[in-house]
Computed example of a mutant assay.
Amino acid sequence: MNEPRKASEGRANFSATMKAVFWSFFGVRKRKDYEHDAANLNPIHVIVGALIGVAIFIGILMLVVRMAVAK
């Protein structure tokens, strides 16, 4: 269970966090990847990434609604 960490493993960078947040929006994640993310992601990065993802999602929805109403 408690395996020693490799030197290359450490805290994930922000782009890896954004990738994990992106996949979580779809609910698609392998168990192995989920466990890796849970061990390596910075919680602050996850919160910031989720807020960015929500802002992008809302922006896309507003754009689609405006395009639909304009026609």
Results as ranks from 00 to 15, higher is better:
1 M>W: 11
1 M>L: 14
2 N>A: 13
2 N>C: 06
4 P>F: 07
4 P>I: 04
5 R>F: 05
5 R>I: 05
6 K>Y: 11
6 K>N: 10
8 S>H: 13
8 S>L: 04
8 S>D: 10
9 E>W: 07
9 E>T: 05
10 G>D: 01
10 G>K: 08
11 R>I: 04
11 R>D: 03
12 A>L: 13
13 N>L: 06
14 F>D: 04
14 F>H: 07
14 F>Y: 15
14 F>A: 05
15 S>N: 13
15 S>C: 02
16 A>K: 14
16 A>H: 09
17 T>Y: 00
17 T>F: 01
17 T>K: 03
18 M>S: 06
19 K>H: 14
20 A>W: 04
21 V>K: 02
22 F>H: 15
23 W>P: 01
23 W>M: 11
23 W>F: 14
24 S>T: 10
24 S>Y: 00
24 S>L: 02
25 F>H: 09
26 F>A: 14
26 F>Y: 15
27 G>M: 05
28 V>T: 09
28 V>N: 08
31 R>Y: 06
31 R>K: 14
31 R>N: 11
32 K>T: 12
33 D>E: 13
34 Y>R: 14
35 E>A: 12
35 E>M: 10
37 D>E: 06
37 D>V: 05
37 D>S: 06
38 A>R: 15
38 A>N: 05
39 A>S: 09
39 A>L: 08
39 A>D: 09
40 N>S: 12
41 L>G: 01
41 L>E: 02
41 L>D: 01
41 L>M: 10
41 L>Q: 07
43 P>Q: 05
43 P>A: 04
43 P>F: 03
44 I>G: 02
44 I>Y: 11
44 I>H: 11
45 H>M: 06
46 V>L: 12
46 V>H: 03
47 I>S: 06
47 I>V: 15
48 V>Q: 05
49 G>D: 01
49 G>S: 01
49 G>R: 02
49 G>M: 01
49 G>L: 00
49 G>H: 04
49 G>F: 01
49 G>K: 03
50 A>M: 14
50 A>E: 03
50 A>T: 15
50 A>R: 11
52 I>Q: 14
52 I>A: 09
52 I>Y: 06
52 I>E: 06
53 G>R: 02
53 G>W: 03
54 V>T: 07
54 V>N: 00
54 V>I: 13
55 A>L: 13
55 A>T: 14
55 A>R: 07
57 F>V: 01
58 I>R: 10
58 I>S: 02
58 I>P: 00
58 I>N: 03
59 G>Y: 02
59 G>I: 02
61 L>N: 10
61 L>A: 05
62 M>N: 11
62 M>L: 12
63 L>I: 07
63 L>G: 09
64 V>L: 15
65 V>Y: 09
65 V>H: 02
65 V>A: 10
66 R>V: 05
68 A>H: 00
69 V>W: 04
69 V>C: 00
69 V>P: 00
70 A>T: 09
70 A>M: 08
70 A>D: 12
71 K>Q: 15
71 K>E: 11
